[in-house]
């Protein structure tokens, strides 16, 4: 693949395992709610598991566990922390 890698989102968390939220997409209703749920810049998120066939995934943040679908997860941008499985 040429060009710079596209930025990582929460949907990539299964490959990254642990990450920090860098930002959430602006101006959408869903995004405001995601911020309210705790996806604020700097928040640490930890991957737990994902349902088969690209089903919803479970992540840990701010001391609780949340299940959300990849379609929502794509709106949260992350920077991987240690333990990354990326090449």
């Amino acid at each position: 693949m040429s060009g710079p890698n596209p930025p990582l989102t929460l949907a990539d968390l299964p490959r990254v395992l642990v990450a920090r939220v860098s930002h959430v997409e602006d101006d959408c209703v869903i995004c405001e709610r995601l911020r309210e749920l705790g996806f604020c810049p700097g928040t640490e998120v930890r991957f737990e598991r994902q349902a088969p066939f690209h089903g919803p995934m479970i992540v840990q943040l701010r001391g609780y566990r949340l299940s959300l679908r990849p379609s929502e997860a794509r709106r949260v941008f992350i920077t991987p922390l240690g333990g990354s499985l990326l090449p």
Binding site: V29, I30, R33, L34, L37, P56, I58, Y64, R65, L66, S67, L68, R69, E72
Partner: peptide, 11 residues
């Protein structure tokens, strides 16, 4: 139309 996000806390 745009629907609400699906999120569910696992207590």
């Amino acid at each position: 139309g745009a629907s609400l996000p699906f999120y569910l806390e696992l207590p």
